[in-house]
């Protein structure tokens, strides 16, 4: 039971990553692929954030008063802030990559009039779209 409680969350994060990877490889629709990429990303991010968790730790903001008296700060009382910083920026970058991915999908849709991978490949092989100019 002790072992189960200290590990179950890693297994569930792995499950999230597996769902994302399967979607990226197996799905035919480009937007579905992009959503799967988002799921894979959050799987990794949640794994990193969970490394920072500490039982008995509070949020990483030092308790402070107006006068600025703080006393002695014990690191065991605060969760590890470093993974939070790394993942915070990763989330913001993920919205950038999402924008670029959707823009690419939109461009493909304007050229080939479909979001489905197999139809796009079919039409490229037939010489439609971008190749004619």
């Amino acid at each position: 039971m002790e072992f189960l409680l200290s590990k179950y969350n890693y297994w569930l994060y792995t499950l999230i990553m597996m769902i994302g990877l399967y979607g990226m490889l197996a799905k035919n629709n480009l937007v579905k692929k992009i959503i799967s990429m988002g799921i894979f990303q959050t799987g990794i991010i949640v794994f990193y954030v969970s490394i920072g968790a500490k039982s008995g730790g509070t949020i990483p903001i030092i308790e402070h008063t107006q006068g600025g008296t703080h006393g002695i700060i014990n690191p065991a009382n605060y969760v590890n802030p470093l993974p939070h910083v790394l993942m915070l920026t990763a989330i913001v970058v993920s919205v950038g990559t999402l924008g670029v991915a959707l823009a690419l999908a939109l461009r493909l849709y304007t050229e080939y009039n479909t979001l489905h991978e197999d139809e796009i490949i079919e039409r490229i092989n037939q010489g439609e779209g971008l190749s004619d100019d």
Binding site: I45, G52, A53, P60, I61, V79, P83, H84
Partner: peptide, 10 residues
Amino acid sequence: MGAVDVAFTE
């Protein structure tokens, strides 16, 4: 998990 800044961003 105490990652309030990450939660806010998400």
